[in-house]
Design a protein around this nucleic acid. Sequence first.
DNA 1: ATGTTATCTGAACGATCGTTCACATCAAGC
DNA 2: GCTTGATGTGAACGATCGTTCAGATAACAT
Lengths: 196, 196
Amino acid sequence: MARKSGSHSEITGPRIRSVAQSLIARHGFAAVSMRQIAAEVGVRAGTIYLYVADKQALLYELMETHLDTLLAAWEAVPVPEDPTEALHAFTSFHLRFHFERPEEVFIAYMELRNLTPENFAKIEARRRAYEAALEAILARGAASSAFDLPDPRVTTMAIIAMLTGVGTWYRDGGRLSRGEVEAIYWRLVRRMVQGA
Amino acid sequence: MARKSGSHSEITGPRIRSVAQSLIARHGFAAVSMRQIAAEVGVRAGTIYLYVADKQALLYELMETHLDTLLAAWEAVPVPEDPTEALHAFTSFHLRFHFERPEEVFIAYMELRNLTPENFAKIEARRRAYEAALEAILARGAASSAFDLPDPRVTTMAIIAMLTGVGTWYRDGGRLSRGEVEAIYWRLVRRMVQGA
DNA sequence: ATGTTATCTGAACGATCGTTCACATCAAGC
DNA sequence: GCTTGATGTGAACGATCGTTCAGATAACAT
């Protein structure tokens, strides 16, 4: 009763993070114990500490990975010159990325207060960088009179809150497909910023 | 060492709920202990059980009170006949109500998963009732061609998410006053629904 | 002044928490 | 086949958790 047959760090490590993500998304970080995570992985609590420094690091790494993936994915999107098309690209990207990762998104928004101040600052910086991407598009459109914005900063926060909110009600297999939801939201976004 | 001088149930009871609200909003329900709440009230943990059945009831009562207050406050708002004016009334009401109660709003959105299934159902019913108020305004406007909506239900969720999101960034004493934020959001909302 | 009731304490209950570590076992290289 | 390093166990640490309750004290009615 020590090392299990077939055990491998390349399997256990990722599984710990995957299981932790599901459990934290479902019950919240503070409500999930290391023993619960270990049990679902099929391992004892002590084993987790071979892969993660402590519980705080586990949460931070999940959020850091999510935001770095988000930023990298956006970097990979070709942004059209035309502000309206650029905004469309952002809207589609954001919705599709969030459709694919409901757990990560949930954690990234709900567990900020369970980060240490240092970790919180690092996550916040990444979130601001993402918001800045949208704000840049809006500012460019406003400068070229393609958009008519009441306030670029507030409009940025409004659009992101509106789009991210899709996670609170959208479920696969529901009344609307992802594509239909995308079309509806794009129409709403476009109207919010459209010039006179 | 028993009853404290000046102790009174009309003081201690509300104070427990008030302190619990602040602590839960700041650190999350699961991360706040009954002893922490008691300490901030200036009392021992056992005292809380003279006023609340258990920790779950404490959370539920906070959320129930918040949503009942929200629904009652909206009931008291005179809703204009004109759909656009009605939507304006809803937007202003929602923003002002949420400006005044950042803690309650935060808890109502973040702690849903810490409710028992029965309590969750009761809170959800109230939230749906509130959403229905907005959806009714939108449907009325769509029927009279005052609004041109891609989808009443999705537009409802989009507007509420957008408006409620103000809590994530707005701080009193910041760049914009509450009135300015209200004006900006109203312009965004109006554009989202405006007819051709 | 006395008795009654409302209010709170202090200690205790078993359970669970995050974390550590000596030890056991399996997989892999020689 | 032996050795060595990677992997996981099992037990234990002190701390803290939600909750209960007999007893103590203050406020109030008489």
